[in-house]
Nucleic acid binder design. Sequence first.
DNA 1: AATGAATGAGTATTCATTCAT
DNA 2: TATGAATGAATACTCATTCAT
Lengths: 217, 217, 217, 217
Amino acid sequence: MAREARRRSMRTNLRKQPMQERSKALVTALIRTTARILIRDGWPALTTNRVAREAGVSIGSLYQYFPDKDALARALVEQISAEMLESLMTLAVSLHDKSLRAGVGMIVHAAIDATRKDAALYRALLLELPRLGMLELFERVNGRLEDALADWLASRRDEVVMRDPSLAAHLIVTALDALTDRALLFRPELLESPRLARELEAMILGYLSDRGGVLRG
Amino acid sequence: MAREARRRSMRTNLRKQPMQERSKALVTALIRTTARILIRDGWPALTTNRVAREAGVSIGSLYQYFPDKDALARALVEQISAEMLESLMTLAVSLHDKSLRAGVGMIVHAAIDATRKDAALYRALLLELPRLGMLELFERVNGRLEDALADWLASRRDEVVMRDPSLAAHLIVTALDALTDRALLFRPELLESPRLARELEAMILGYLSDRGGVLRG
Amino acid sequence: MAREARRRSMRTNLRKQPMQERSKALVTALIRTTARILIRDGWPALTTNRVAREAGVSIGSLYQYFPDKDALARALVEQISAEMLESLMTLAVSLHDKSLRAGVGMIVHAAIDATRKDAALYRALLLELPRLGMLELFERVNGRLEDALADWLASRRDEVVMRDPSLAAHLIVTALDALTDRALLFRPELLESPRLARELEAMILGYLSDRGGVLRG
Amino acid sequence: MAREARRRSMRTNLRKQPMQERSKALVTALIRTTARILIRDGWPALTTNRVAREAGVSIGSLYQYFPDKDALARALVEQISAEMLESLMTLAVSLHDKSLRAGVGMIVHAAIDATRKDAALYRALLLELPRLGMLELFERVNGRLEDALADWLASRRDEVVMRDPSLAAHLIVTALDALTDRALLFRPELLESPRLARELEAMILGYLSDRGGVLRG
DNA sequence: AATGAATGAGTATTCATTCAT
DNA sequence: TATGAATGAATACTCATTCAT
């Protein structure tokens, strides 16, 4: 599934499909090099000639597969979001029969773990992608997660107070995403502390329980 | 207060203090033009020569006051965060004797209103600033707000369940900021709907009430 | 005759003689595709890779028969001039026993018709060939025509006033060629009007009659 | 008049008008260098960086005045056609009261002289300009000459046989232009021989006298 | 012979920044 | 102080051509 998604997005991004082993390795090397340069030196250092050189490939070959510079970054982001989507879908499945508390715990930990996983690259992307209009790519992943979450919340309707499951899912997912992103950018030590998870769980469970009574009004 | 903050930050950014009336007007015009171009045509169109031309100023004069291109954007952001800070501090003061519910309502609405205020410019900045390392500037504003919020929450200690007022304040402020930003970028219609405010209030109040009991553990 | 001319010129242009049926078809397809692209999209769009692709041939095969890009264009021009030469020689033969007036009429109409025949391609070539040093190719055709014309004029010596039959033939052929070319480029409507033929005939007959008396001086 | 024409065309071609002495010299140097490279090494050698370097100017300065590479060539051609126009207009004036024979002689010699004047540059342009769509620029000059010639021919109506003075003028001008161009390209020795002038005069006078009677039909 | 993936020299153009006037 | 002409390093991208398979 994730593989299919990847292939489809590649088709819209790549100039031509790498068929041979050799060209697949070439494309992979270019994307990997893109990531490395982005992490090490940031977007301004990401020049097509440099990517090609560091990947041990001629500039012509780069353009054989990537129509322009942005396509390189796009391919990287697409690959990452495909991976994310894959693990999130696994999460969604295992959510199925969990209690509210257990499920929320799983989601929170998954969000934090995902952020910690490739922290350096993820951080670089957070800084550079907005301008490239590629936040949408991550947004798509979030959208899928929201759907799964909304379904699960609906199945837990007796445990939660919600006016709008879909909006609730959107807020929860967005908040988790945004909060872990900001932690990565500005408070990286929080990602290593159990306190962050605890507070996030409290926030989500509190929201869904609506002790404040806002949603019952 | 806001004026002082502005002057301090300016001192680190500007090449020299504009002392004369004329110079002040020049600096103001350049920053205003920067904002206009950013809104109208985005970051790629923001070239120093163009800013100078549209501001009716020679490129040489621009460099008399701004050491490099980024300084222009930085000055704009600093001006905006100073304004934000000012209005947030006003908010903090009027929070003082409010009930938990009323206070949270005020904060939520303030966050949404601030985002809607200069939406076009704010959106442009959200997309371009990460790369400029200027998220910190907004982060400073958030920091001040967090302090004020922590104080207020502490004074409401009997109404709320918190292990760590400062962390709670951080999460609340960050969540509000991040969620309104994302709404601006991806769901602008939400900013116009009362649903967003309602859900945000529910989330914060639920968090502070800890119906889930996570924080009591 | 035309066939021989073609083969000889090919030998100087092609990397090797296409012996097999298959290779001949390949060479033909490449030249035809060259013409098509030239007509449709002009010289800048004429890239070797594109010619090969549109001809359904690998780029490697193209270079098997054409040493470089210009050779493609040269082959096309040679083919065209061979065809031209062939029809002009036919014309020369049928000129033989014509009166001055009838003969000039034939020549003028032949020149106009030749220009109109493949107008789009011819126009593209006129614009691109000078730079390729291929005007000489057309010049060779003209040279042959001049010889034939000079012979015929000499045989009509009693009807015409000429100091130098060969120079006269050169001028007549060159003028006809140049005037029809310019008409194609700048006054295409003239090519469709009988006025052009009438004036050209008047010019040539006037020249050969030397009413002005210049040549008798 | 020629000065006005030049200024107007420059305005449509140049990015900005060179106001200072220094910048005028810069623009002049760039155009002169363009001509020199074109003569010496042809169009493929005409790269913007090289023009700038050989003109002793930075590449940035070149682009300050010329929007793109073609503009450089266009400016050169415009300058030349302005000069041509100027001398042709002088010719037109002095044609006024000349007899048919004398007038035609003047025109023929003017055409030959113009071609010989800057032969090297003119030759280079003949080879490269068609592709640049700049033949039109020369065509404009011819158009003006045709008008003047048509007027003069009309005033000599009793000496000449014409159905269409304007078409006759077009043919004469085009033939002269084309024939001298071809001579320059393929028979440069003709330009130095009195024979060319003699034959051209015979052709034109013959045409206008219509001994053949074609036009009287 | 045929293929087409790979090559890399080459080119137009931009734009932040300087500095002579 | 102000000007804006001049600078030139830097970069994305093309396309004729080669050569391993």
